[in-house]
Design a binder for these strands. Sequence first.
DNA 1: GCGCACTAGTTCGGTTTGGAACTAGTTCAG
DNA 2: CTGAACTAGTTCCAAACCGAACTAGTGCGC
Lengths: 148, 148
Amino acid sequence: MADDDSAQLWKLNQRLLTRVMNAAEPQLAALGIETKEFFVLDEVDTCRYPAELAAKLMLPKASITTYLRNLVAAGLVRREIDEGDLRRHRLATTPRGREVLERALAALAGEFTTMMSRLDAHERAEFRRTLLKLLDTGSDVEGDRRGP
Amino acid sequence: MADDDSAQLWKLNQRLLTRVMNAAEPQLAALGIETKEFFVLDEVDTCRYPAELAAKLMLPKASITTYLRNLVAAGLVRREIDEGDLRRHRLATTPRGREVLERALAALAGEFTTMMSRLDAHERAEFRRTLLKLLDTGSDVEGDRRGP
DNA sequence: GCGCACTAGTTCGGTTTGGAACTAGTTCAG
DNA sequence: CTGAACTAGTTCCAAACCGAACTAGTGCGC
């Protein structure tokens, strides 16, 4: 019910995300990565293949290719041949990649935490539960659609 | 506390937004507007001037110019001279603009509500309260930084 | 009533993005 | 074995984006 309500919520949420994103950006730049690249780097160890990254991050394959190119050029990620399926590129973070990721997360943590510290532990837990509920189930249509 | 926690939350939220955005897009396209243009159209009556829109939506001025150009070309928004300050363009939605906006909101409401209906009234209220809390106060650094 | 510092909005042009076409590898039916 | 129908990842290039330079208008101090 209350359609305007939902729309309003969406806009609020949108604005929140944008704000945190903007705050985080310069910090990541200092580490030599773009925000988008950070997302990729952050998922490389979970999603071992470009196609998986594309699905998880809801970004087009072409964009993943671009961000990976940069990460590889920067020596943060390695592409290796996947023995089981020669079409695929198995991905792995390099030690340097792990280090940069760690620092990036630490830097971001500052921003996140600053923002999130307005909530007490209970509220934060509740917020997370709500987000998970919203994201759950059927909606995993995934695909080649654009994301962040 | 729990930095990973915050980061995790942020990612979840990011994903949620992306998903709704993607679901909404074709509906708006059917009405002849882009998602970004919708945001602008939606705020025109609140933010009567391009500069205000840029601040509110956290988008660069150049982008606002572009989206407005399209909206004006589509006959949804009018630019008029502001008597008080001739540098400014007073904006107004046309009747057609109002109609399209209404339909767009209705279309979006479907998506929003589908997503939000997983929450009961209480949860939704709580969620809103949390978002508002997160967005409140000092963070209004605003500026010419990029947004949605 | 002029110069200077300022703000509103647009234009310009380099960068980023991502849809579509492509190449390489797989799988399976005949 | 082929070869047709797939999937993984890349390349290509047109469109979208947006920082910076610009033009037009304001308003203050002198």
